[in-house]
Each structure stands twice: as structure tokens, then as C-alpha cells.
Design a protein around this nucleic acid. Structure first.
Lengths: 334, 334
DNA sequence: CTGTTAGCGCATTCAA
DNA sequence: TTGAATGCGCTAACAG
């Protein structure tokens, strides 16, 4: 008779299954292992039956302690709103679950938060950390999760960690070329947080494209990616001379600009300037915000990330970030 | 000389700290414990210094194995898009992290997925599971995570698990009363998935409110909460007699209805019918979708959930779900 | 193929 | 206050 069950917590352990099936713990471990391991057919059968009878559920934590694999993948963001791209995130979550791992979602909206995590040491070990937050560099994240595998999507990578970033220059060139072809000679740029590495490169790409197409950069307005900041920025167009085109580094800001201008110039049917956004949010497919935008293939993006998680060995230290090409998506405002 | 470091993995363990500080492992454990425990000042000092020198980070998994607390909280959703309410989710994530726990995000878009989790037994032990997905009942979730504490937000609760649900009837009555006060006599209802428990109650609330206000229910159209399904549903209004008002059980569907009607009746300035949404999404504060809606206090909602996580003992088995009152948010379309 | 043994990293008895 | 010993639940290494 097994008397190990209920010794502490009510939940049956592997030892209980072994006792009931009258085999050793090792056999139970092997029979229940996801990977095929040598167990005779009849013992396997007895084990499965016993596990079923007891309602046994393995404890992944205990397993991790010996295997050194937690099947946990951290996703680190500034705020949930970084995932404005819910489509991308939904797909990512699905793929991670499909490879038998689970997502630990962390938001670290400031450098303070990162340091707090480090100090308190509460962050779980994970098999991999996927970083969108730009408040954390690769080295810090490696310490934070004691994981050697961190994939950086925030534009800050180092030699030891792979990175996947949209190659934004391509799409930006296409968008600016589109504007030029339509007779645009002057443009304003509405930007996000200047401190972010990605944003710096993005702005540089716009400047280069304007230069190449002979478009004058009439103004640079500072926003924070949000709808509200887009609206605020658009106030500049109400009184001053409006440029031929306005480029925003996020669709949300472009939506704000669009709404502000609809209010300023209610009867201005053919819009007073061409408007270009960034992100290719799904809402730009709604009638109310038909904003020409720049986006990338989400499936491809996720595929690269997951590949690093599944085959970390394919990463050669020091290699450059994997670029996912962006492209221009023309819509009514462009 | 300590030779325990680097024996397997390079990461220092508690034993390494003990060796360097020249104290026992127990002392290190106590000195580094979050809760105050008896350690002499000088030893504590030596331990902290040694831990710092080694870059020691405790392993939460190993700790969990003995404490039976993982500091993990599962959030279970159908799809990420359930979190249309990103504001709510962002706040929830913040609060959970504030109490020293971390969020494990699971999507189980179908009953199959739930069963797969159960079968594969890969779900981590968690301190609590917060369930939005309506593909999982409380008992199943308890088995899934071997956790006694699951909080149901999907409308399916049982005697053993607490539940927090918006009290939708209040807001619905207010919205319908608003319509009645404005002379609405007939209404159409655009609904989501009929199978969901929440949706069933919601529809019943609308029916009751219509009845109470003497509004005739002209049509019930089936959607799936999405923008696209709202657009499709609106086709019915193009040819048939339009009702005085259209009530949608999600803002996304209301947005679809609005855009479809703008297209059908482009010059119909004073809209042909009043439109009411549900969820009070932040986008309804944008100019383009000024949809009167029904929402609830997100801070209060999250507060209730977190309270159950922190003080599970406050839940009395068998008690009814905690209701968070909703209210009507009038906007231009109402 | 099987069972025994020895840890994984930590918290917690219990004596001292 | 301290340290030695024990065990959490499981897998891996080894010998049969």
C-alpha cells in the first residue's frame, strides 16, 4: 500500500504512480517522458493506467530543476501598448505554445523596473527572453533571466545575442518615393520618443529618403507614438503653411493628425496634404482611417524569432541582426 | 577554496555564496530571504557581499519546490484579442508584478487546446489562474494548473472558485433608457458568439431593457464581436426598414456598422439611426468612432481580482460572483 | 529493458 | 543565532 500520497499536499507525485503501478520511479519517468525512452509495453501500460487513476500531473518545476530547461519564454515589453501589434503578438504566442513552451509576460516600463527585477532577483529562469522593451540591453536581460538566449527586437543588440528587426529603410524609401511620384515637394515628420534606438534609425531613414527624392523637410514634430500626441502635433498645420505631406512614425499618431485636420478643415474633401503612417495597423483597413502605411510580414518576423528559440545554435556570435523587409501599403491618404 | 562553482552550469548557487562567506547554506538562505529571519549582522553583511561578488541570483524554481509557491499567475484567454481591453490588461499586469508575481499568458482558442494542455501536462504550477477564456470551466482550470485558486472572469463560475464579472445589466438599462428618452421605438441587436455564457446574459439584459422601455426588438443579427462581422450585419439595414437604434454587444461591431452605413448613406449627415456599442474601448474617444458605449471601472475590476490573489482566504465557497457595475458613456452616435 | 543511486538549488526542520 | 541533515519532485547516470 502506498502511503506517500497526501503526505504533505494532496497532489500525487511520480512516486505514488510508481507505487500503484508496482514499478520503479525511473520507469514512470521514462514512460511519461515526452521523448521516447525504453520501457516495456506492459509496464508502460500499467504506468499510464496508474497515472490516470491517480489524476497524476507532473510538476514541470521539479523537472526543470534537473533538466535545466523550464519551457518558459519571457516576453519583455515597455507597456502592453507596445503590442499595438496584437496580430503579431497573438501569432507569436501561438507559435511558442506550439513548440511546447509558455510565455511569461513582463512589462518593464522604465529602467527602474529593470533594476528592481535585478535587485529582487524574482525573475524566473527562462529558456529564452524576447525583448521589445528598449529599457533593457541584452547583457542586462541575460542576467535578469540567467538565460544565454535573448533575442532583441528593440534595436539594441550586442555580439552575444541575436536580434530581429524590421528593415525599415526599404519601406520608408518606397513610401517617400510614392509621395515624390505624386508631386510632393515638402514634408513634415512627426516622430516618437527620440531616445529609442529604433526611432533614431527610423528618423535617419526618412531624412535620407527625403534627400534622395528631393523633398524638403519642412518641420520635425515630436510626439510619443500616441493618438493624442498626433493630434497635438497637427495643431502646427492649422496656422502655419502646411507641407505637401506629413509622415508619422506610427499609425496612431497619423490617426491623430487625420482627425485633427478633419476638425480644422471640415469641408476639405481632397485632403490638404498626403498622410503616411507607420506600422500598418489593422485599423488602417477600416474606412475611417485609410492611412497609407509601412509594415512588414508578421509571419516571417515571428518565424525568425521562433527559429532562434528552437535552434539557438544557428546563431553565430557577432553576426548582424536579422532584417525583415518592410514595404509600403498604399491607401487613400497617401 | 570553493570548487562547487562551475561544476555544471556556470551560475553560482547558494552553496557557492555560503562557501565564499564562510557560513552555512542555511545562513545564506536566511540572510537572503525576503522575510526577516534571524541572522547576526556581521554574517548577513558577509553573505550580501559574497552574493554581490559572485553575481549570485537565486533560482525561483528551486525555491518553489520547497515553498510550494511559484509566484506565477496564469492569465488564460481565448485569443489576445479578448484583451481588446488593453488598458485593463496593462493595469492587471502591473498590479500582479507589484505584488511580486509574474504573469504566464496562455491562449486556449478552443476546447481542444484546453484538452491538449491537460493531456500533455505541460502547464506550470501557478499560485493562481485568472480566466477570461470561456473554453475552460473552473474545475478544468484547477486541474490544469494544479491550483486551488482560479478566478473566473468568463461568466462560468462554480462554488469552489471566485468570479468577478461586470454587472452589465446596469449599463445596458442606462443605454436603453437613453435611447428611449430620445424617442427610439424600435431597435436591432447585433450579438457575438451565442455559445458564450456572458453573451447569453448580455442578450437577455438587452431584451429585458427593451421590454421595460417599450422598445420593439426589430431584428437580432449574429456577429462574432469583430469589425468585419459588424459590417456584414449592417448590410441588413441597407435595404430593409432601418430601426430607430442599433445596439451592438461590442464596440468593434459598432464600428463596422458605422462604417458600413457611412458607405451606404454617404450624405446622411444626421445618422439614420442611433448606434450603441459595448466595451467603451478607448478608440471610441477618437473623432472617427464617437460611439456611445457601456463600460466599467477598470481599476475597480482589477482590484477585485488582485484581492483574490493576495487574500484567497477572503473567498467564501459558494458565494456569488463579485459584480463590477457598468455604466453608460454617451457619445455622438447615441 | 530495469531498478538503484545521486543529485538539481533551495528552505526548513532540529539540535546544538 | 547557527549548522547539519533532510526532503521538495523529478531526471540522469549507472549497473544489472
Amino acid at each position: 500500500m502506498s502511503d506517500t500520497t497526501d503526505h504533505k499536499t494532496g497532489r500525487p507525485t511520480l512516486a505514488d504512480v510508481a507505487a500503484l503501478a508496482e514499478v520503479s520511479r525511473a520507469v514512470v519517468s521514462r514512460a511519461l517522458s515526452p521523448s521516447p525512452r525504453p520501457v516495456s509495453a506492459d509496464k508502460r501500460e500499467r504506468v499510464l493506467r496508474a497515472a490516470e487513476a491517480l489524476g497524476y500531473r507532473p510538476n514541470p518545476l521539479a523537472r526543470s530543476l534537473t533538466t535545466k530547461r523550464t519551457n518558459l519564454v519571457a516576453v519583455v515589453v515597455n507597456h502592453i501598448h507596445d503590442l499595438s501589434d496584437l496580430d503579431l503578438f497573438d501569432r507569436l504566442l501561438g507559435e511558442i505554445q506550439a513548440i511546447g513552451k509558455q510565455v511569461l509576460l513582463l512589462k518593464v516600463g522604465s529602467v527602474d523596473r529593470v533594476e528592481a527585477f535585478l535587485r529582487e532577483g524574482v525573475a524566473h529562469h527562462v529558456d529564452a527572453a524576447l525583448v521589445w522593451s528598449d529599457f533593457a540591453d541584452a547583457a542586462t536581460v541575460r542576467r535578469m533571466f540567467r538565460s544565454d538566449l535573448v533575442v532583441m527586437m528593440n534595436g539594441c543588440h550586442d555580439a552575444l545575442s541575436p536580434a530581429v528587426v524590421p528593415d525599415e529603410a526599404v519601406g520608408i524609401r518606397e513610401a517617400v518615393a510614392d509621395a515624390a511620384a505624386k508631386g510632393v515637394h515638402s514634408a513634415a515628420l512627426v516622430t516618437g520618443r527620440a531616445s529609442s534606438a529604433i526611432e533614431g534609425e527610423r528618423v535617419a531613414s526618412y531624412r535620407a529618403a527625403f534627400e534622395a527624392e528631393g523633398i524638403a523637410l519642412a518641420a520635425v514634430l515630436q510626439g510619443d507614438y500616441s493618438y493624442a500626441s498626433g493630434r497635438a502635433a497637427a495643431a502646427a498645420f492649422q496656422h502655419e503653411a502646411t507641407p505637401d505631406a506629413v509622415f508619422c512614425t506610427s499609425d496612431a499618431m497619423a490617426m491623430g493628425v487625420l482627425d485633427a485636420c478633419r476638425r480644422f478643415f471640415p469641408d476639405d474633401r481632397p485632403s490638404r496634404f498626403r498622410l503616411y503612417g507607420f506600422d500598418n495597423l489593422s485599423i488602417t483597413d477600416h474606412d475611417a482611417y485609410p492611412i497609407s502605411s509601412i509594415g512588414f510580414d508578421k509571419a516571417g518576423f515571428v518565424e525568425h524569432i521562433v527559429r532562434f528559440v528552437v535552434h539557438p545554435e544557428t546563431f553565430v556570435p557577432g553576426s548582424p541582426p536579422v532584417g525583415v523587409p518592410t514595404r509600403f501599403f498604399p491607401r487613400a491618404t497617401g
